[in-house]
Nucleic acid binder design. Structure first.
Lengths: 207, 207
DNA sequence: GAATCAATCCCTTTTTCGGGGGATTTTTCG
DNA sequence: CGAAAAATCCCCCGAAAAAGGGATTGATTC
């Protein structure tokens, strides 16, 4: 079987090193390169034409989401696997929307990386969803509700600590309107008060 | 010269691998262990008595700040170097307050790691302060207030969306007490309501 | 043209929160 | 031991939010 050509993109040399180490212990993998950012990655992709790109989601400059979009557009044959820490899980859905084929947590084991590569190679989606950290304080966040632009606007202002009437003044509507948006937000996020709302919104990276 | 005994603590195997690799290329370093969490780290410290502990700041369970505090208390001779990504800069000052001797960004190069170790070994502070990320969208948050354990507990429950009286039942105290803690939290975070409180707490990684 | 949805506005009642005071009792630590 | 910090408890009051209704307008979509 041909080896899988893999390119890794991450702005942390340490992660790059670790990933390199792990990949080099997987027999069917041939590492075509390690990039410390999205721009150099694009060049390396052109030069090396890897089969799979494993990329960090949050990086300075072009982030993983944009990188994925560009790869999928310019090289539809190349698969992308997103890497993340638990802090940025809200970005995962964006990656998937942009055509990523899977995602890995940065605390993934060699076995999981291997599995991800094999799964993606077979044109299937790999979702590293074995959330074993129920007792670690990192609870998972659910789907991000679809918010209207007005709701997002109000949510931001609520998070800033403004009251309904203060928000009303700012966006030139009646306090009743703001209150309606607030209620809709509570409903959409399925929470009972502002505290829960902001916590969830923060977890989803909305505030 | 005697080799420096170094212990690395991080919950991401990948970072651990990368760090191991980098350290193994530094001649004067002897790696005494790699821990994937603060608790196992404490055991390894007792067993191995390293000279320097390099620890991630944000980890599930006991975080780097607490770990540093414990190490400095129980083993004053051991130096601690904090590791962080740009997201957690607010925690850095806390680490320093707790007696950390320096900090490294996770995108540090081998040279910087070497420099950090040498600097710290000579009882000086190493600050990796080449801040080039002004345009990366990672806004800084202010200092994290020092919270008592009870306050943290209450903060968590507030974030979960419980009311004062619900929290009171859960932790077997009077609602008045919970309210006091809540007010103290508002004061410490310098915010006027729960929304602002939770937003800040989330930014500081407390909820 | 009917239906949907976003955005707007209105009202009442109950509960919770926020701000302002206190005070006492444990813990912790030098 | 003795001071300081943490944790506990108490009261009042006004403001804000939550929960429950409902209604209208305009744009888009089927």
């Amino acid at each position: 079987m041909d080896k899988l050509k893999v390119l890794v993109v991450d702005d942390h040399p340490m992660v790059l090193e670790g990933m390199h180490n792990m990949l080099s212990r997987i027999s069917f993998v041939s590492i075509t390169g390690m990039s410390n950012g999205a721009e150099p990655a694009m060049e390396q992709i052109q030069a090396e034409m890897p089969d799979i790109v494993i990329t960090d989601i949050s990086m300075p400059g072009m982030n993983g989401v944009e990188l994925t979009a560009r790869i999928r557009k310019e090289y539809p044959g190349i698969k992308v696997i997103a890497m993340s820490t638990f802090n940025e899980r809200s970005l995962i859905s964006q990656m998937i929307e942009q055509g990523a084929s899977g995602y890995l947590l940065k605390n993934a084991s060699r076995e999981q990386i291997e599995e991800a590569l094999l799964t993606v190679k077979e044109n299937r989606l790999y979702m590293n969803l074995d959330l074993e950290w129920h007792d670690t304080g990192h609870q998972q966040v659910g789907k991000t509700p679809v918010l209207t632009s007005r709701e997002k606007e109000v949510l931001l202002l609520i998070a800033e600590g403004f009251t309904n009437s203060q928000i009303a003044e700012k966006i030139f509507v009646s306090p009743y309107t703001v209150d309606s948006h607030r209620k809709n937000l509570l409903t959409k996020f399925e929470v009972g008060n502002t505290a829960g709302l902001i916590k969830l919104a923060a977890k989803h990276g909305l505030v």
